[in-house]
């Protein structure tokens, strides 16, 4: 963000020679006023900022979707933090998020660095790698639910690998399925991020290392990884934000089950609000998610900066 701001203000120092340019002086000619930003800002305020404020207000109210909302103080908050399912959902959300980061980061670095090479077949293979990204989360979840169906799916045919075949019947395997499906869906995206970043590493660094007699592993750990630092930060934070808001996968693959064994926070919020019609508690859980996402996104902007993210995009083909 800082870099972006500096860049935005750079022309100012070039043209704005006088410290206090009068209206209509050269510096102001041809500059659009803030009126150009008004329509988009109003629209965004109405459909994103206002609901965000309302989620805070609703978390202190009781509302069943039909009657008028009623102020109940901290009731929703004490209820959700006394609720063992809610506490469990926070731990499950963190567990799934960490599993996602642990599985996807090494895999996508490896694939991204490999795909950044020059051979022709890599372009063809990376085009295939990319296909999971074309599917919506809904389609990915429906696809894997069908493929892993206990009676008609792959586990029923490959019993030597899957045992009784019911991956959705146990907490450990159900969590494994959720982590695997997210990895299947999102590794291509992170691979793209690393591919762009790896292409931008100056070749001269490797040539110098080779002259010094550094082997491939030392080159990887002493040149490639440090040069990918910003991309690793960006990609990991994307994974964390994505993990916190995982919803379709749970709704379609496990329905939070068996029992409440895979009920993560975003899914629990949906259930509270739209299945139990306890919109106040739903709003409180939503606010927990907003706070977590905001803290992490502020970290994104601080640590990596959005223009660095765009910088990695420029290297892509």
């Amino acid at each position: 963000m800082t870099t972006q701001m500096t860049r935005a203000s750079a022309p100012r120092t070039v043209t704005g020679k006088s410290s206090r340019p009068a209206r209509g002086s050269a510096a102001h000619v041809g500059r659009p006023g803030f009126a150009w930003a008004v329509p988009a800002t109003l629209f965004f305020a109405l459909f994103a900022i206002a609901p965000l404020v309302m989620v805070g207000v609703l978390s202190f109210m009781s509302w069943n979707g039909l009657s008028e909302p009623e102020f109940v103080g901290l009731d929703n908050w004490t209820r959700i933090f006394d609720d063992p399912v809610m506490i469990q959902s926070i731990w499950l959300t963190l567990l799934l998020t960490l599993l996602g980061v642990a599985l996807q980061t090494p895999l996508s670095i490896l694939l991204g660095v490999w795909a950044a090479g020059e051979q022709r077949n890599r372009a063809v293979l990376s085009a295939i790698y990319f296909v999971p990204l074309l599917l919506s989360s809904t389609a990915v979840s429906v696809l894997w639910r069908a493929l892993l169906d206990p009676n008609f799916g792959v586990p029923a045919q490959a019993t030597w690998l899957f045992g009784d075949g019911n991956l959705f019947g146990k907490q450990s395997t159900a969590i494994g399925v959720l982590a695997f499906v997210s990895t299947w869906q999102f590794t291509p995206l992170h691979t793209l991020i690393y591919q762009g970043a790896a292409r931008a590493i100056p070749q001269v660094l490797y040539q110098a290392a080779e002259i010094d007699g550094a082997g491939r592993f030392r080159q990887f750990f002493h040149i490639t990884l440090p040069q990918l630092r910003n991309s690793i930060i960006t990609s990991m934070i994307l994974m964390v934000v994505g993990g916190l808001t995982t919803f379709e996968t749970v709704l379609i693959l496990t329905q939070g089950g068996p029992g409440t064994d895979t009920t993560i926070s975003a899914y629990y919020m949906y259930q509270k609000a739209f299945k139990s019609f306890d919109f106040g508690a739903g709003a409180a859980i939503a606010l927990v998610l907003v706070v977590a996402a905001t803290i992490i996104s502020l970290v994104v902007v601080r640590l990596s900066g959005y223009d660095k993210m765009r910088g990695t995009m420029e290297g892509m083909s």
Binding site: F44, M54, L58, M269
Partner: peptide
């Protein structure tokens, strides 16, 4: 800055008030 902040808002977070609105 408002739009930068907006990047942090997941749809899940506002779905309850959105339903109300």
């Amino acid at each position: 800055r408002l739009f930068l902040l907006g990047l942090a808002i997941p749809a899940q977070a506002v779905i309850v008030p959105m339903f109300y609105l």
